[in-house]
């Protein structure tokens, strides 16, 4: 019980990043390949698609870093490429729209403005 309060208070400490809640940075390969890391905005996509579309129909596992998303896969129509194919959404040719992150960022999810969350553990 005491530890619960301890952790709850840890949540009060200002988090480092200030990006929008739920933004995912994907940078397993991008930096190494000389591209900016990818920023995936949850807020933007959930206004258009329910979670179940990506996390059930399209099969994205709900764990940052768990899906081995690659550029080859995307161009072949998997992962982001299931929609970013010029049909459901603009196609993979628009490199910079996805590769817009600050170089050097680690793969993670932005947990809350000041709230921590799994992204910080």
């Amino acid at each position: 019980m005491k530890r619960v309060w301890g952790v709850a208070f840890a949540l009060l400490l200002p988090a480092g990043a200030a990006a929008e809640y739920g933004d995912v940075v994907l940078n397993r390969y991008s930096d190494d390949a000389g591209m900016r890391p990818v920023v995936f905005p949850h807020w933007f996509h959930r206004m258009r698609f329910r979670c179940k579309v990506c996390h059930h129909e399209l099969g994205f596992e709900m764990r940052v870093g768990a899906n081995d998303v690659t550029m080859e896969g995307i161009i072949q129509g998997r992962y982001c490429g299931m929609c970013h194919n010029g049909d459901v959404a603009w196609s993979a040719e628009n490199c910079d729209l996805c590769h817009s992150g600050l170089p050097g960022l680690k793969t993670h999810i932005v947990g809350g403005h000041r709230t921590g969350g799994p992204g910080r553990w």
Binding site: G16, E20, S100, G101
Partner: peptide, 14 residues
């Protein structure tokens, strides 16, 4: 309280 920073200032977008 902090709310909706412009993308260029959010420390995630370049």
């Amino acid at each position: 309280g902090a709310q909706w920073l412009p993308l260029g200032k959010d420390q995630v977008h370049d």
